[in-house]
Each structure stands twice: as C-alpha cells, then as structure tokens.
Design a protein around this nucleic acid. Structure first.
Lengths: 231, 231
DNA sequence: CAGTATGCTGACTAAGCGTTCAGTCAGGAG
DNA sequence: CTCCTGACTGAACGCTTAGTCAGCATACTG
C-alpha cells in the first residue's frame, strides 16, 4: 500500500526515493519501452506514489531524460575504465557480463531504436573511443589496416550494438543470451571471432563483389531508375 | 471530410478500405512503433473512421497481427524470388533498395525489437534460407567453410538485420541511409565487404583470442552447443 | 420494386494516461 | 515551542485511448 516507514533497512542498497524511482524506471523502460511503461507501474516498483515521480522529475519525459543521462554517464565511465584494462574483443560483450549493468544494457538496447539525444551522444562517444582503440590495435599489429577506418569502426560497432538490440533473436535462434546469460555466449563469440579473423568470402568472390561496388561508386548518380533491371 | 462516394478513381491504386487501413498501419507502425500509434492516426491516414478499423480487424491487436502476417508473407515471397536471381552479398540490402518495400522494411525493423510471433517466424525462415544459401556458396567455393555454420549464419544474418534496425545511427555516424537512401550505401557496403573478405584481426590476435575462447568453452559444458545449464 | 447484406460513420463509453493540487508528516532551525 | 522546508500522498482533473452501437447509404438480389 504505502511506502514502509522503515526504509532504513534498505537504505544501504538504494538511498533516496529519487534514485529508487530512476532505477525502477530504467528497469521497466528497458523491459517494455518508454511508451509501454506507465508512471503508475514505475511508482509501484519503486514503492512510491506516481505524484512523487512528477514531484522529483517534473514530467515523464523529464524522468526519461534523467534515465538517458544516467545510463549514458554510467556506461561511458565504465567504458573508460574498460579501455584501461587492455585489449578486448568486444567491449559491449564485456559490459553485458557484469550483472549490475544488465538493466542499463537493456535500457540502452531499447532506447537505441527510438533514439534519444543523450543516448546518441553516448553512441557517438563510444564510436570515437572505438576508433581510437582500433587505431592503436592497428599500430600494434593486432588489427589489420582498413581502406576506410571510420566506416569500418562504425560498422563493427553497430554490428555489436545491433546484436545487443536483437539479443532475443540470438536467444531463440542460437540459444545464447547476450544480456541475461550467466555464462559467456560462446557460440556467438566463436562465430564473431571466426568472421573477424578468417573472413567469410573467398578471394574470388572478393574480386567479383568488389568490381560491382566500384561500379556503384562510379555511378554515384542519385537519378536513374535502376530498381530491378540490374541484378 | 467524409469519404468521397466516388472512390473508383482511386480504386486502381488501392482498392478497398481494408487494405488502405493495413497499408496506413504498416507505415505508421513502422515510423512510431505500435504503441506510439493510435487508431485515430491510422484512420486519418487511411481516410476512414477509427470505428471502421475495429469493424474490419476486430481490435488494434488484430490489426497488428494482420500487418505482421502481411509483411511476413510479402517479404518471404520477395526473398524467395530474390534467391532465384542468383548470388547476392546481402539480400536485406537488396530488398531495401526497392522503394515499394521500404515501409515494410521499416515496419520489420521496428517490430524486430518488440517481437511478434509472425515476424519471428519470418526471421526463422529467412535464416533457414540463408543457411541453405550459404551452404551452396561454400559448395561453389564462393564462401569459406565454417567450424559452426549455423552460428555463423545466424550471426551474419542478425548483423544485417541489426544494421537495418539501427539505420538511423548509420545515417548519423556514416552519412549512409540503409532504408531511405536513393543510392546504394556505398561506404557501408565497402566496409562490410572488407570485413567479410579480409577479416579484421591479424593471425596473432586470432591465436590470442582463440585460446581465451577455448578456455571459456572448457569452463562451460564442452558438449556441442553452449546451452545454458548453470548460473 | 422491396429486402437484405455490407461498408461505413458519428456519437458514445469506460478505462487508463500524465499531471495537478491541497494537504500530511518528519525533521531541522530559530 | 513555532516555523519552515521538502519528501510524500490521495483524490481529483482533463485528455486520449481502444472499443461499442445504432443507424445511414449504397449495392446486390430476387
């Protein structure tokens, strides 16, 4: 019913109602999306009244912005720490291993799709980190150089984020859980490693598709109805 | 204001109100998500009354299911056709090139995240197709063999789908538009091609990460796939 | 022509939403 | 003690939502 007056026993875990509300929101937003979560549900999970949420955050959108900001700040700090630890195959996977940050990853995965300015900033900064990080890898001889480093970093990074966003499908199709799994998603990691190390296409195919792409680049003409006439 | 009695003049473009409603729904669902779209908005776009939607589809969820079904059927038929046309780097990109199917791709990208049974079936079938398709590629010497073909196909396919889902970020970070672009997303395709042909990591790194992965696999059950068995 | 089904609508309802507000309560300051 | 402040609540508000219903208009059928 009402918030228990004796909240000191849980005070060590989460202090004020403000943060408890934010944590509840992150969890529910990450599960059902912002639009699919009502203030009432958040209030119930946080053990407060809906009015208190407005009291603290002004509006539902204010709460969402606060969540964005918090998630962005926290993950960015975590990422900065992770960089110091040394080379890693896929930083995203690393962070998802840490149970404490799973709600944040779920929130990020949901928010990535409907776009928030703060999360976009977070993504931009993460890509920037990755760019620098990969560059160091190239210099150290761990990573092959690329004809277009920026594009490759963006693709690699968004591949990883896309995997996170589609983690439910990985669970269904491959039986690995990229966010909630208690053990590392071995099958996923092995496949990614194989792709990133050995490649997928044979040299012959490379020439084939490469020439097609060069042809595309040449006719960078937006006009021309080449809808289905060219295969 | 009211629906014009003379609807024969538009009948060739879109016939009945039933399909006009479905098309409007697919477009709006794809833009703002199912939860973020009201029946009123769909009705307005279709030029009908909200009551008619209920009349035809029973409920909002009924409409959503009908949209799922339609998108799944249409894209599956398209994909089956595409397979006949011959080898392709990334079938998803092909379909997104065709302007007529862009709303369907947008719908798919949105629905992929919040999960619908019909769309899941669609994905499963697409993966099945891809598995077979890649296998033929291996037999023809176009694609390198894999230690775990199933896992590699799932990863490759979901990488492509993830790119579609995160197309807004590709637009922001790389300036290429995977869904709405009038010209092929050259930078994206080149980067993907480079990754899939040449790989990313150097052989030395491969040994390094590989041993780490083997170590991971030892910790869990070395029985075939990586099932979730213990927390 | 009457009868009847069907596409379709405006007016309506109940429920749920985010938000407002008056006011309670605990605790610190004077 | 009184006064004030800030966390907090229950009840209400205005609005939007999905969904209902009686009935109109048109089109086919006999």
């Amino acid at each position: 019913m009402v918030a228990q007056p004796d909240r000191r026993e849980e005070a060590n875990a989460e202090r004020g109602g403000v943060e408890r509300i934010r944590d509840a929101a992150i969890e529910l937003f990450g599960q059902h999306g912002v639009n699919g979560t009502s203030l009432k549900a958040i209030a119930e999970r946080a053990g407060v009244s809906p009015a208190l949420i407005i009291h603290h955050y002004g509006s539902k959108d204010g709460l969402r912005v606060a969540c964005d900001q918090y998630v962005a700040d926290t993950l960015l700090a975590l990422k900065t720490d992770a960089v110091r630890q040394g080379p890693r195959l896929d930083p995203v996977m690393l962070t998802s291993q840490i149970a404490e940050f799973r709600p944040l990853m779920r929130y990020l995965a949901k928010t990535l799709v409907d776009g928030s300015p703060h999360v976009n900033d977070l993504i931009d900064k993460m890509v920037e980190h990755a760019e620098q990080y990969i560059e160091e890898g190239v210099a150290a001889g761990l990573v092959k150089p690329s004809a277009n480093p920026r594009a490759r970093v963006v693709v690699l990074f968004l591949f990883a984020m896309g995997s996170l966003v589609l983690h439910e499908h990985f669970k269904r199709l491959l039986g690995v859980d990229l966010i909630d799994g208690d053990e590392p998603p071995v099958a996923y990691l092995q496949a990614v490693l194989e792709i990133y190390c050995e490649g997928v296409l044979t040299p012959g195919t490379y020439q084939n598709v490469r020439s097609y792409l060069d042809q595309l680049e040449e006719q960078s003409d937006p006009k021309g109805g080449s809808d289905d006439e060219r295969d």
